[in-house]
């Protein structure tokens, strides 16, 4: 089975440890939500998966098509080329270049370069708004539009897995719905494997098959959709760290 496994992952910044023995897994075609309040380690976990933060212990293994790769020793661009893509916190677009150039930049890495045209066409087909605005400088778009661009950009590297960090943060509620709709649509269209962090969890869990709650740097609980409706109260309690 194709999947990403994280086993007993610990990480931090200098003397400050943020993640303590985190274990989780993400199977192909699954959408999993990672829930947790601010400052509980969601972004650190994602930065660890992408290689921006080094793990102090534990493993992150991509098992795909019979090949197992430990990601903990790799550089971020190597991890991206293996098929992990991220829509990061703060979006991290290149502000001073156009929408199209932002997409092309991601499509130009040696692993996907020869499929750039198809990938670009796919992005524009999925997000017609970006086709309309393809000449616009990225920083002049609204927050929601920039978020859509960041999602589209993650498609340009032809990912196996997309990791989305708080897509709704800093956006107006109505725009949040647009962004989440885009993610849902993406899933329906391509059955993409997605790990998404959120703190406004209501909408996130509606579209997810499973959810992990990360609290104080460790996985507090796991909720499965097969358990029936995921109970909002229970999630809220777990997010606040109550047992």
């Amino acid at each position: 089975m194709n999947r990403l496994i994280i086993e007993n992952l610990s990480a931090g910044y200098g003397a400050v440890s943020v993640l303590r023995k985190v274990s989780l897994e993400l199977n192909e075609s699954e959408m999993v939500a990672l829930l947790g309040m601010n400052g509980n380690g969601k972004s650190t976990l994602f930065n660890c998966i992408l290689g921006f933060v080094r793990a102090s212990a534990g493993r992150i293994v991509l098992e795909w098509n019979g090949k197992n790769t430990d990601l903990t020793k790799l550089q971020p661009h190597e991890i991206v080329r293996l098929g992990l893509s991220i829509v990061p916190e703060g979006r991290r677009l290149v502000p001073n270049i156009s929408v199209e150039d932002n997409l092309k930049l991601a499509g130009s890495n040696p692993g996907v370069r020869d499929r750039m045209k198809q990938n670009l066409a796919y992005c524009f087909e999925t997000f017609p708004l970006l086709l309309e605005r393809r000449r616009q400088i990225a920083s002049t778009m609204s927050g929601g539009q920039q978020q859509l661009l960041a999602i589209a950009r993650s498609l340009m590297t032809a990912p196996k897995i997309i990791i989305i960090d708080e897509p709704s943060v800093g956006l107006a509620p109505i725009v949040v719905r647009d962004v989440l709709n885009a993610i849902t649509q993406l899933r329906e269209k391509s059955n993409m494997t997605i790990l998404m962090a959120e703190q406004s969890f209501f909408q996130a869990i509606d579209v997810s098959s499973r959810a992990y709650v990360l609290s104080h740097g460790s996985i507090q609980r796991e909720f499965k959709r097969s358990d029936g409706e995921i109970a909002h109260d229970e999630i809220r309690r777990a997010m606040l760290g109550a047992h």
Binding site: P76, S85, L93, V94, S108, S154
Partner: peptide, 10 residues
């Protein structure tokens, strides 16, 4: 935006 390059696989 150095990180944008890493995210792009560069």
């Amino acid at each position: 935006e150095e990180r944008a390059l890493s995210i792009a696989g560069l």
